[in-house]
Amino acid sequence: MSLDLTSLTLRSPSGELLFAPLTLSVPLGDVVTVMGPSGVGKSTLLDAIGGHLTHGFGCSGSIKLNGREISTIPAETRQVGVMFQDAHLFPHLSVGDNLAFGLPSHIKGRAMRRSTVEAALKQAGLAGRYDDDSAALSGGQRARAALMRTLLAEPEAVLLDEPFSKLDSSLRDEIRHFTFSHIAARGIPALMVTHDEADAHVTRGRCIALKKPESD
């Protein structure tokens, strides 16, 4: 059981190959870090896995999550959680409703759903902030809320796109540990794109470098 990429290639709208065909397996509970120069298509790789490619990008090869081919199905059915640089909390929802947004439907009943969210808020150090405006949270609080929101949706894999790059350096360590410990606790595969060597170091996981193709 894992996230498996086989001979994955991506092409830009102009038809240019972004990087050499990629084959990679991320076992459960592992965090694999992807590094590489700007413009090599790191974020595009995550878009391809998460199902967020914009029109014109070409994707071939296979993406399997726990044995299930997901490259051809819409993003919302892939069960792949994503963390971007920004928290992207929904500005019209309260903190708690943001977390509840992704809560699966098998968690039934108003009280049950509410208590699930409250518990997650507590874990994120946001106890009692259910009804607050998400815009009122600090940067670190937003990052923790976003992670809890992603995890509450019960994803089978998580993608992290430079998740800590916008945080103050003082906060970065704390959020990093928070994030990786929670992902580890779920035992799901995670793929992280980053520029920051420190991110890769903390995960103690595998680190691969994307390269431009030799010649196209």
């Binding site: 993003a75 919302e76 059915t77 959680g81 992207h88 019209h92 947004f101 992704g102 949706a153």
Partner: peptide, 26 residues
């Protein structure tokens, strides 16, 4: 922001839910 919508999709929200629950209110 496209990422806001991608976030919603990754949380399992289909196109209709993204439209009604995210885009229209925002």
């Amino acid at each position: 922001n496209r990422r806001t919508l991608d976030s919603a999709a990754s949380l399992g929200a289909g196109p209709l839910k993204r439209l009604v629950k995210i885009k229209l209110p925002i």
